[in-house]
Write a protein that binds this DNA or RNA. Structure first.
Lengths: 351, 351
DNA sequence: GTGAAAGCGCTAACAG
DNA sequence: CTGTTAGCGCTTTCAC
């Protein structure tokens, strides 16, 4: 039942180097000062055997696995993929390995992953929870250092990395209003995400400040799927009085909206402007290129690891003065998909 | 130096249930038949404490960590992201956890990750190597079960999941030829990938069978970056005799080609047709929607895990009769971006 | 400075 | 059926 006979242990290295296992350990972790002489012998033996210490055994002994766990909704969404890249890079730089799990936005799976990661005795978990109203269900009774990213639990004192969703969403909506748009529709994903709630709030504020009504028929709650944006888009564009601009609250939904415009052969931005949250690679390649709000995805990942490590080093599992909240900035990139509102002339032509 | 005092051990469970640790282990792994009576008591104790056994300790003891490692070039590329999804789902279904590493197409990083995974004592590794000519450098001296996916080492007897690149690429090129195209350009990514070599070969065969010359000026070797497709596309389209069709060998390059068309204001497919390998979400949302070759990405991931597990269960680390090669099928989706070759009339108009 | 030995949490013989 | 025990590979006192 042994795994591989070709896997060496520190005892093998010690024997070959003619020292004790403890000394090998000391050399490998350059702990106490080992004499140059023995140190060299040990290193030669390590190299000769191609030995690398068993991290699992080390973890068992030290109580730290040096593994960071991560739970995200869906790695195939470029938004999460880029955050993950940031996390991985930062983790490795600090000597940690990463274990990523996809929850598919299912609370049950989310929990199962959290428990699996706990069973693995990861040192901490970075999580993007899909339901910000029931975050407590996520936390194992036995506290593991946790950092939330992006979508975070509401009204909870926790470590998290957030972005200025309200602010940038308001700013982006104002961009549309400045272009003359009055009938601005918005399609969100699941409203269980704190991010969606905040982005909608930004939209509301901009509308309110411009004294524009937020008409329910222009506010569509979708899901994080392309089909959702497609159907929502078709529904909006088929209204007796269709919107002149559509604001998609994430990249999946936006993809669906673009498809809706294509199917209905509605020119963008001539007849309808489109703006989206997220700024995936393809935003600039589309015709027209898409006005988009870029989130600091990579940096979110890096910051999450930094905060987690900070929290790991604190005695109580939180940073010194309680949970810390880091806010990063998103920014709007105006491109070709948003233009001046269609002139009435165009409607005249249509009739 | 203990990690968390709130983490219980099997001894705690045993004490609470009034049994021995061995019995707890037996219940948890339903090994030998434990009496209903004690079994219940143990399960209650486990539930009461929220106990879950330390996988690291178990791994140390059993010699199997039940972790699968994975090394891919870049998780932010939808192609790899979808393979990863398949791998994760299949892994979890079989009681394995997953550790994914990004190599950024750097051989050095690729190796470092392989070693890190070995140090973690993963049970096997799934790898998409970026240089199919030097795969041996990847293998640690101490053999770990390995399964290659997609880009595989050339001329090596190894476990791998491949696709019918040559065949489908030939078929796709024939599609362009049937549309009347004669000047068909092709932009590849790094030719160190076996996939690129095979896709180019398919193109060559189709051209040869149609008695069309493969002109060097129409064969561009790029890199897996959008910029690469952009510059390659601009270069091709600026030729005195530009191609009437461009075939991009992966989704990143294709994105760049679309951007080139946009910048040069060249109508697609009226003047230039575009076809690409890979079929990411956005292919159908583009205007025009893009003719694309879909790879069975998710299934590649699932198959890779299946083959790895099969190999893990074999005594010699390989499947019964030596390494196994599984071939899956890709398929062409004809969409709007490929059309009949531009009539000479259009050129006349241009002059 | 270095070696010897204990023990992290678990499983797998082996007794009883 | 259940308990006892040894030991997986490593780190870390503690003597020397």
């Amino acid at each position: 039942m042994k795994k591989r006979k070709t896997t060496y242990t520190m005892a093998d290295v010690a024997r070959l180097a003619g020292v004790s296992a403890g000394t090998v350990s000391n050399v490998l972790n350059n702990r106490t000062v080992v004499s140059k002489h023995l140190s060299k012998r040990v290193q030669d033996a390590v190299a000769a055997l191609g030995f690398s210490p068993d991290r699992g055994a080390r973890g068992l002994r030290t109580g730290r696995t040096h593994i960071i766990g991560m739970v995200i909704p869906d790695i195939t969404n470029p938004h999460y993929a880029e955050i993950t890249r940031g996390v991985e890079d930062a983790a490795i730089e600090n000597g940690y390995e990463l274990m990523v799990c996809n929850s598919r936005r299912q609370a049950e799976l989310e929990q199962r992953h959290m428990h699996a990661l706990r069973a693995q005795r990861v040192d901490g978990i970075i999580v993007n929870c899909s339901n910000c109203y029931h975050p407590r269900d996520l936390l194992p009774r036995y506290d593991l250092p946790l950092v939330f990213v992006g979508a975070v639990p509401m009204k909870s004192k926790i470590n998290c990395i957030v972005t200025n969703n309200v602010e940038v969403s308001q700013e982006a909506t104002e961009h549309l209003i400045r272009l003359g748009h009055r009938r601005i529709a918005i399609i969100s994903a699941e409203m269980t995400y704190s991010t969606m709630i905040e982005r909608l709030e930004g939209y509301r504020r901009a509308m309110a400040e411009a004294a524009l009504p937020v008409e329910p028929k222009y506010v569509v709650e979708g899901a994080t799927e392309i089909e959702s944006g497609l159907h929502g888009g078709i529904k909006l564009l088929s209204l007796p009085e269709p919107p002149t601009a559509i604001y998609a609250l994430n990249n999946r939904v936006a993809l669906g909206v673009m498809q809706a415009l294509k199917e209905l052969r509605i020119p963008c931005p001539e007849q309808v402007s489109v703006m989206m949250f997220d700024d995936p690679d393809w935003a600039r390649s589309f015709s027209p290129s898409i006005t988009a709000i870029e989130q600091p995805t990579y940096q979110i990942g890096v910051s999450a690891v930094q905060l987690l490590l900070k929290s790991l080093r604190s005695p109580d599992g939180n940073v010194e003065h309680g949970p810390e909240q880091v806010e990063l900035k998103s920014c709007l990139h105006v491109r070709e998909s948003t233009g001046p509102v269609a002139q009435e002339l165009k409607f005249a032509i249509g009739t």
